[in-house]
Simulated assay, not measured.
Amino acid sequence: MAFLREIFSDATSNLSHDLRNFSIQERRPVKITVPITSSSHHMELNVNLEPNAKYALMGLVKEISTEYAITPEVSNINFKSDYKVLVLYEVDKAADNIQHMIKWIIDRYSDICKLIVCCEDDADILEPVKNRFKVINIDAPPTHEIMDVLIQIAKQEEIDLSMNFAAKIATKSKQNLRKAIMALEACRAHNYPFSEEQPIPLGWEEIIIEVSAEILADPSYSRLFSIRGKLQKLLVDFVHPKLILRKLVEQLLKGIESSLKRELFYWHAYYDKRLPPGTTALLKLEEFVAKFMSIYRKSSSGRQIV
Rank of each mutant, 00 (worst) to 15 (best):
Ala69Thr: 13
Phe194His: 11
Tyr83Lys: 12
Leu234Asp: 02
Glu263Asp: 14
Ala167Cys: 08
Ser195Ala: 10
Lys284Val: 00
Val129Pro: 02
Ser300Val: 06
Val117Gly: 02
Ala11Gln: 15
Pro142Phe: 10
Lys54Val: 12
Val61Asp: 06
Lys84Ser: 07
Pro128Glu: 11
Val47Ala: 10
Phe133Tyr: 10
Lys291His: 09
Phe79Trp: 02
Val289Gly: 01
His42Ala: 14
Asn21Tyr: 08
Val236Ser: 04
Ser81Met: 00
Glu6Pro: 05
Glu6Cys: 11
Asn191Leu: 13
Gly255Cys: 05
Phe79Gln: 11
Gly302Phe: 15
Tyr296Gln: 03
Pro128Leu: 14
Ala180Glu: 11
Leu243Tyr: 03
Ile7Phe: 08
Ile151Asp: 07
Pro276Phe: 00
Lys174Arg: 08
Phe79Arg: 07
Leu231Cys: 00
Ile106Tyr: 06
Leu253Tyr: 04
Leu115Val: 14
Ile153Leu: 14
Arg297Gly: 00
Ile200Glu: 03
Leu245Lys: 08
Tyr83Leu: 12
Ala186Trp: 15
Leu49His: 05
Ile70Glu: 05
Pro193Glu: 08
Phe238Ala: 12
Ala154His: 06
Ser162Tyr: 12
Gln175Ile: 02
Ile116Gln: 06
Tyr109Cys: 14
Pro276Lys: 02
Cys119Lys: 05
Ile153Asp: 13
Pro35Val: 13
Gly302His: 15
Lys103Gly: 01
Arg108Met: 08
Ile295Glu: 02
Ser13Gln: 05
Trp104Cys: 10
Leu235Pro: 02
Cys119Met: 07
Ile305Gly: 01
Arg28Tyr: 03
Ile244Gly: 02
Leu161Gln: 08
Arg132Pro: 06
Ala166Trp: 05
Ala167His: 11
Asn131Glu: 15
Leu60Thr: 06
Asn14Asp: 15
Thr143Ser: 09
Ala217Tyr: 07
Trp267Leu: 04
Ile138Pro: 02
Ser300Phe: 10
Ser9Glu: 12
Ser226Gly: 00
